[in-house]
Design a protein around this nucleic acid. Structure first.
Lengths: 139, 139
DNA sequence: AAACCTCATGATATAATATAACATTACATA
DNA sequence: TATGTAATGTTATATTATATCATGAGGTTT
């Protein structure tokens, strides 16, 4: 969080209270949070709680790479490596519902390369793996 | 389609009229279709048009691998290789909106392997690439 | 044939996710 | 001060998806 605050100050990006709060909420969660769950938590924290409030904050955070959207869940998670451009790969545990970002693999960019070779010009990849995390597997 | 019809007959899977129609609609489209767009098309074709009708048909088709869901669009596309178990990789063109299924790459299963190596037990992968297709790139 | 089971469909309502549109405020700076 | 830009407030509505209970269609058992 400190890093992000500095990054924003440096780049003159406005991490306003509501944006800061949403980011904080996401950083405190291992699972993805839906926009309306975030909205509830904002309300509890004393913020205005109309849907656009949450969606705007999320748009901002996603746009700046501080948060990722998990497409298969319509949920959001904090980025574990903000500021560094990357193609995230997510591991979604169906037992404990944790969502974790895999350390960047060559294989992620290999997919892009393979698709590029077919003539398709990749701009962004969405990669989400569903399964059981190591902790849950051990039990 | 013929193949799927035979496959269903063989396995005693019921490809009812509404399911058949939804599959046909998707096979005639290069883009993904949303459930409510499908619903409209069903209505035009004289079918009952309440939401559960479309969702049930889609659930069935997805379950049997005849159709895939495009998570980043909440849309659906016909599978280009039905009956064969695979981890699809989609290429989504943001110009012409076409969605095409990439020929199966080693790299898709490499991702699984790499994640498995970290202890995460992959059961399913969702891989969607956004960009510009070869046809649109040439223009 | 009657009773029964299972799966599919019909029908209504509502939940969950997301955005459009326009008004207002806050702050930087010309 | 006034003017521009970005952020926030506010209301309404669009879009996507599911819960629930009723009805029907087709086999299977007795």
């Amino acid at each position: 969080m400190k890093n992000i605050e500095e990054y924003c100050k440096d780049k003159n990006i406005k991490l306003t209270p509501v944006r800061h709060k949403v980011l904080e909420l996401l950083q405190n969660e291992k699972s993805g949070l839906g926009a309306y769950r975030i909205l509830d938590l904002l309300r509890e924290a004393g913020f205005n709680s109309q849907p656009p409030v949450a969606y705007r904050a999320l748009d901002f955070l996603v746009e700046h790479g501080f948060v990722h959207k998990i497409e298969s869940q319509n949920s959001f998670v904090a980025c574990t490596d903000p500021g560094v451009h990357h193609s995230p790969v997510f591991m979604i545990c169906k037992k404990c519902e944790s969502v974790s970002e895999a350390p960047t693999f060559e294989t992620a960019s290999n997919i892009s390369d393979a698709l590029m070779a077919t003539g398709f010009n990749v701009e962004q990849t969405i990669i989400e793996a569903e399964g059981v995390c190591s902790t849950c597997s051990e039990q």
